[in-house]
Amino acid sequence: MERKYTILAILLIVLALGLVILPKKNELKETDPKVLLSEAVQKSRYLTVDQVTHRIIENDPTLMLIDLRKADQYKTFALPGSLNIPPDSLLSKTNMELFSQPGKDKVLYGNADLTAEKAWLLCSRYALKRIYIMKGGMNEWFTTIVSEKPVSGTPSTADLDLVSFRKAARMFLIGTGETASTSAAVTVKEKVQVIRKAPKAAAGGGC
């Protein structure tokens, strides 16, 4: 091996070894209040019920639905793949590890927005990333997806597409002819699976 390559190889080994022996930093940090305020006034944390439903149907592996309602409400009806985390156990060690999973969009929702907003604020305060709120919560989801709204006036193509999508979503998620009150059959009981260590990425490559 040429000398310049030997030097480069030694440099790479030293750099890699440095990563291993450097003291670990405390990963759980708190967000600066000014940054938190700036994030809180932005609307980018909201996802519409249509966006969330689309990702459920697409079986999006990056979607993690966090249902903040009471356990009995969750048992009565839950969105497919959702996890029930009551607000009082939001910051437990297990749940913090769950929220720290990289590559996942954590979407919070309750019956309305209030609980989800509080949970979002707590998670953001703990510097957790990719936390979103399903705007309007389950109430809005039922109003929009389950209850069929008549289209007023002359609808645009986009409006008609949206109506078609909601109709298809309704059939996909609760079946034809069912209503909100009879949709309990879609109850999902998924065991919470936790990746213990929040990993840091090593980059991949490809051509």
């Binding site: 990563l19 291993v20 450097l22 079986n59 592996p61 990056t62 999973q101 990289p102 590559g103 996942k104 990746i195 260590k197 990993p199 840091k200 990425a201 090593a202």
Partner: peptide, 16 residues
């Protein structure tokens, strides 16, 4: 489907 899986978690070691 394995989700957004990292190879170091498969081996149970740190990314470093």
């Amino acid at each position: 489907s394995q989700g957004a899986k990292m190879i170091n978690t498969v081996f149970g070691i740190s990314p470093e």
